[in-house]
């Protein structure tokens, strides 16, 4: 599987994402600088975690206005798989590629801990290697992960199975609506999520359940 990682000034988990993709797909991903205007022909485009432009404005807001975003939108429309993790998820909502918004955590503090994550829809290109309803331990690490969307939007997300992963068993770390941890777009080719599967791929990380998210995409494009 061919993949690419978009790097913005202030991205800081791009190395984690590059490492995970290379470990799991066996192919070194390409790095795409935000100032570029075209994307390589790949099967998966990843937007890594971090604090793009310092996130001094709304998280992801300035990155969503980067030169590369037009190409990203075109790729999303074309059906290319796109994964945004943490700041990547925030950028995807700021571009409008995904609905909703990520607000400051309800506790107002940055939170880095392991949560329980429920696979709410195992029927997506990103979750098909999991069982429906399966619960895994997964780390989160963010300041703005409190997902919000208007009621009609929420009804649509829930009704169409666009909620891919949810915080389980009272471990919602940020006050997110309906315990939402990650959503797909309507077409199902774009996933945004706050937890970090790229930091859950080796025994050293305390578990390998994150691998299957990437393996799902490998399977989906095969």
């Amino acid at each position: 599987m061919k993949s690419a990682v978009i790097v913005f000034p202030g991205s800081n988990r791009e190395r984690d994402m590059l490492y995970a993709l290379e470990q799991i797909t066996g192919t070194k991903p390409q790095t795409v600088w935000h100032a570029e205007t075209s994307l390589p022909d790949v099967d998966l485009i990843a937007l890594p975690g971090g604090f793009s432009y310092g996130d001094y404005l709304r998280s992801g807001a300035i990155a969503a206005r980067s030169p590369i975003i037009a190409a990203l939108k075109a790729a999303a429309d074309k059906g290319t798989r796109i994964l945004g993790v943490c700041n990547g998820f925030q950028v995807l909502t700021e571009t409008g590629i995904l609905p909703g918004a990520l607000m400051r955590n309800a506790g107002l503090k940055f939170v880095c801990k392991t949560v329980r994550l429920e696979i709410a829809n195992a029927n997506t290109d990103f979750t098909r290697a999991y069982k429906q309803g399966e619960i895994i331990d997964c780390p989160v690490s963010h300041h703005d992960g409190n997902f919000f969307i208007q009621e009609d939007g929420l009804t649509r997300l829930e009704g169409e199975g666009q909620v891919a992963v949810r915080y389980a068993e009272g471990t919602n770390p940020n006050g997110s609506l309906n315990d939402i941890a990650g959503i797909t777009n309507a077409a199902g080719n774009v996933l945004g999520m706050m937890p970090h599967p790229e930091n859950l791929i080796e025994d050293l990380n305390g578990g390998t359940a994150g691998r299957r998210l990437f393996e799902s995409v490998v399977e989906a494009i095969a």
């Binding site: 975690g49 880095c112 690490s141 930091n199 791929i201 990380n205």
Partner: peptide, 14 residues
């Protein structure tokens, strides 16, 4: 205290 610190970034924290 430490839950306010990113302890995992870079993927090498055992």
């Amino acid at each position: 205290v430490w839950e306010q610190y990113d302890q995992l970034i870079q993927g090498n924290t055992k």
